[in-house]
Amino acid sequence: MSDTANPAAGISDEEEKSRRDFLIVATSVVGGLGTALAVWPFVHSMNPAKDTLALSTTEVDLSPIEEGQSITVTWQGKPVFVRNRTAAEIETARSVKAADLIDPETDEARVQKAEWLIMVGVCTHLGCIPLGQKAGEPKGDYDGWFCPCHGSHYDTSGRIRKGPAPLNLPIPAYEFLDDSIVKIG
């Protein structure tokens, strides 16, 4: 080390060594941190782009849906189930004690108007679309929806009752613009 020290400046070998150690550590930290931060734009470029985010609301006209009928609309590329529930279905959904459910939630908390059940029709297990929207499709043991992929049963409020799915069918943000138009998203 003696020939790298700078006797003219009056710096000893030891001082020179610790100065170099400091520079090495400081440069490595700044360089490493900078590289790590540079990863973010690449990762974030894989998140939804602005045009994808822009397609975020859907308006639905409810007037043609009669009691006991369902329609499926697309919102953000996903199917949304809109069902005009019968009084019996509402009654069944409300007679269950929320605490007994896999994902405890009351029917009242899942609807804005009792007859209109609006939820994302994507099974919370692995993303299949449950059956039960059309007449003649299996509705599962609880007369709501049934996911054929791995056998999850949902009730008339779209709550998970049996099978591998962990959560109830999610409720999207929506508002009634008037009596028959609803805006989802």
């Binding site: 894989m46 939804p48 782009a49 692995l126 993303g127 992929c149």
Partner: peptide
């Protein structure tokens, strides 16, 4: 089905799935 497997991860699962899809 397979990308939805990642939604099982606690807390960050849904963000990871959105990242994998690049959408919803």
């Amino acid at each position: 089905v397979i990308t939805n497997l990642f939604s099982a991860i606690p807390f960050v699962g849904d963000s990871i799935v959105t990242l994998l899809w690049g959408g919803f």
